[in-house]
Design a protein around this nucleic acid. Structure first.
Lengths: 179, 179
DNA sequence: CCGTGAAGTGGGGTGGTCCTCCGCTTGGTG
DNA sequence: CACCAAGCGGAGGACCACCCCACTTCACGG
């Protein structure tokens, strides 16, 4: 890859980080290109779809989150819950990331290295551990807990509220009654 | 209100119902106006914001849902859960309705009669009943259960999946353990 | 050190969007 | 029937995504 190409890619990513941070996932690609001092064609060549750009923007943050998932090795139930809280808080505070996390397949990019794929793998490990420990209700799948944690962030931008809702869903809305 | 005005309003709503059903809340207003055989200015005069149009499109369905909420008078916990399931199923299958349900205030319209407001009132009654019966976990608010039920539909378009996730959140992801 | 070709560039065009202005039509009332 | 305001819609401005293509610049082989 040529030096100027790499430089432009970085400038575009920096601009995108800023504008997506302000305007969310719907930030204008044109504006991002302008801010990066780059023609819009250049942006589209480096990132053939909005999805590809978003994935690149959030890649590092998501990787960090996944590393924290791998580092956990305490109580399986508590680990899963804590990590889901973190995930919800992250996606609540990070404008636009939800679209990258929940996005379906996109012909333009390799699904293996997307934010969606990375998060899915990290969650699967924690869910499997919790399942083996028997702390999960029957029939709960990785996609279920991810869906719960991520979808909440479409509803609030407050990390504490997101954490609270995750705890709620995890423990149940219904009050536990003695049996 | 003049007859032609009312006729146009209905044509716009019919077109909007169709296109929002196909393309979701982001359907092109221009395309809706075209389909209604109406100038775009006419659409904007009748519905000053996308939000106002969406509210009108979904108003009837939401009212029907609210009526069902009012008709419930069995076990408070079961009623609430059943109605939340219905709400989730409705918003999962009805493209675009989530945006109307979760939308914040909009200077253009009276908040009292919006889908958001209607659903909120209906849910509040069920939540209050459940709270009085003591079947809700402490600190659960109306907005919490609404947020849970509605946000799920951003994540799946399958009504059964949405119902399942509501049941999950309601009963808890964590398996109930004897105490 | 330099020529060359391919990788990379960005301006401008196309076709779409939202929304507003404003001259015109038309429905309903006196 | 005549009037006039309520209502209309086309045109136009500002913006957007995406693509084409003539041009520039980098990096490598001689």
């Amino acid at each position: 890859m040529r030096a100027d190409g790499r430089r432009n890619r970085e400038q575009i990513l920096a601009a995108a980080r800023h504008l997506v941070g302000c305007d969310g996932a719907q930030a204008s690609l044109e504006a991002i290109a302008r801010r990066a001092c780059v023609g819009s064609a250049t942006l589209h060549r480096h990132f053939p779809s909005r999805r590809a750009l978003l994935d690149a923007v959030f890649h590092d943050g998501v990787v960090r989150l996944c590393e924290r998932a791998e580092a956990l090795d305490g109580d399986p139930g508590a680990d899963l819950e804590a990590w889901l809280e973190e995930l919800a808080a992250y996606s609540a505070t990070t404008k636009g990331v939800t679209d990258a996390l929940l996005a379906g397949p996109d012909g333009h990019i390799d699904e293996r290295d997307t934010c969606h794929g990375l998060i899915g793998d990290a969650a699967a490990r924690l869910v499997d551990r919790a399942k083996d420990a028997g702390v999960l209700r029957d029939g709960v799948a990785t996609d279920d807990v991810l869906a719960l944690a991520c979808s909440l962030s479409t509803v609030t931008a407050d990390p504490d509220a997101a954490r609270r809702l995750v705890r709620l869903a995890f423990g149940g809305v219904r009050a536990p009654h003695r049996e």
